[in-house]
Amino acid sequence: MTDAVLMLAQADFPTPMGVLTLNHYLFVSTAMFALGLIGFMTRRNLIIMFLCTELMFQAAGLALIAFGRYHLNFDGQTFVIFILTIAAAEAAMALALVVLLFRRRESLDADLWAELKG
């Protein structure tokens, strides 16, 4: 047991990636995006719908960082900073809207606003 712990401690701790491929990360990112899309389409609660868009932002950010690592430059990380900004702005605006809509109808059901589709 102690030997195993010592061996773990002596190994190169988080193996610095030469062994993983870009595809692994892109797969996680794609699956996350698909989950966010499914959630956006199925859930009827306005707040959860916006949470699902945040999940999709997250997936895009992971893909950007993975590509930046693949090309060994920092552009991907700069773009993720931008995504964080957009997500913060979107959260502020969307949540203000959600509170407004909730006060008007006393409900968060997206179907109540179906008349907006014209």
Partner: peptide
């Protein structure tokens, strides 16, 4: 609106 999902099968298939 929290208790039941809207069109789960179609949306999951698309996703």
């Amino acid at each position: 609106y929290d208790a039941s999902a809207r069109e789960p099968i179609v949306a999951t298939f698309a996703g």
